[in-house]
Design a protein around this nucleic acid. Structure first.
Lengths: 96, 96
DNA sequence: ATTATTATTCTAGAATTATCGAAATAAAGT
DNA sequence: ACTTTATTTCGATAATTCTAGAATAATAAT
């Protein structure tokens, strides 16, 4: 993971609403959650929710799969793992 | 760590310049780095650098210690560990 | 075809953040 | 006291992001 990509992902997670969405999806496991279920939990306008979801999708932290009329969101765990690796790697290599 | 605090920290890390600063400090170990050394590496105006450093300080991700005229910056590793715990905990607890 | 449901895209105003020059502050040396 | 060095604070402008109402799109049911 390069630094630009890492910064983008961190930035998207760095908003309370989006972090809540992401946490819901991490807890939900592979089945993920319907957009409508997320909206029920957060109680925010659909357009606002959609905006935040699309930002998370754009940086690859979550994906969406359509099932008829409903859209299901899924956390992409690997992306988070890569991000954490990026943040922690080479810790203290330059220490005296 | 509560969600507001986690989101703030993630947001501050979600900027390329600040992430670079933070990565330098993680690599540097406990001795940290002087502000002037960071500036040498990044080649940005002092006022801009100071702005970014102070944001990282404000959320507790780094600290500063004065040694006469120079200021030394240090990564606060525990804060990062707490952040990572927050992001990964309860993974898949609601999975079917 | 019409309607209902689910969700996104468009648009715009409000709020926040980024950048950087200039001025100010802090500490040390002359 | 004055100068130099290291760094921050102030102030202004530019750019981005947030929020949410209105309009649109996609799918399914009647």
């Amino acid at each position: 993971m390069n630094i630009e990509s890492a910064a983008k992902k961190l930035s998207e997670l760095g908003h309370v609403t989006r972090l809540e969405i992401y946490r819901f999806l991490v807890k939900a496991g592979d089945d993920g959650m319907m957009v409508s279920s997320i909206q029920e939990k957060l109680e925010i306008p659909g357009s606002t929710l959609s905006h935040h979801i699309s930002r998370l999708v754009n940086v690859g932290l979550i994906t969406q799969t359509r099932e008829g009329r409903i859209l299901r969101c899924h956390a992409q765990y690997e992306q988070l793992d890569d991000l954490i690796d990026f943040l922690t790697k080479e810790c203290c290599v330059g220490a005296s």
